Amino acid sequence: MLEGKVKWFNSEKGFGFIEVEGQDDVFVHFSAIQGEGFKTLEEGQAVSFEIVEGNRGPQAANVTKEA
């Protein structure tokens, strides 16, 4: 699992990017966010995740919000 911070997330469109120190930003789709209820992320929020190869390159999977 990697750790990063949410760079930005558009809850209307359901996607955004996660910043990872020393690496390129990683695309995140709302469907990759773990948990119940409305799936969104806040700018600057700490998250842990895995990287998988998507249709358009690397993207986040199994995203969990850090306490």
Rank of each mutant, 00 (worst) to 15 (best):
E50I: 14
A60K: 00
E53I: 08
E43Y: 15
E21Y: 12
Q59P: 01
I51L: 15
E42Y: 11
E21T: 13
S31D: 05
Q34D: 05
G35K: 09
F15G: 02
N55M: 12
N62T: 14
G44N: 07
D25L: 06
F17P: 00
P58H: 15
F49A: 02
E42S: 06
P58K: 11
E53C: 05
A46F: 10
H29Y: 05
E53M: 11
A32L: 03
G16T: 00
F27R: 02
H29Q: 03
F17A: 04
F38K: 08
G54W: 14
I18T: 01
K65C: 06
E43V: 10
A61C: 05
S31F: 06
I51V: 13
G14E: 02
K7G: 06
G4H: 02
F38H: 13
V47L: 06
F9W: 11
R56K: 13
E12C: 05
L41T: 03
T40E: 07
R56L: 12
H29S: 04
A61M: 11
F17G: 02
G54Q: 05
D25Y: 07
G54P: 03
T64R: 09
F27A: 03
F9Q: 01
G16Q: 00
F49R: 00
Q23F: 13
A46I: 14
G57N: 08
E3L: 08
R56H: 13
F15K: 02
G22Q: 11
L2N: 12
F49C: 03
E36Y: 11
D24P: 09
T40W: 06
G16S: 00
F30V: 06
I18L: 13
G35R: 04
D24W: 06
E3I: 11
S48M: 12
E66Q: 10
V47H: 00
G4P: 01
L2R: 07
D24E: 12
D24Y: 09
F15W: 12
V20R: 12
L2H: 13
Q23M: 10
G4A: 03
L41M: 08
A60V: 03
E50S: 14
H29M: 12
F15H: 15
Q34W: 05
E43L: 08
E53D: 12
V47K: 00
V63T: 02
D25V: 06
F30Q: 08
K65R: 14
W8E: 02
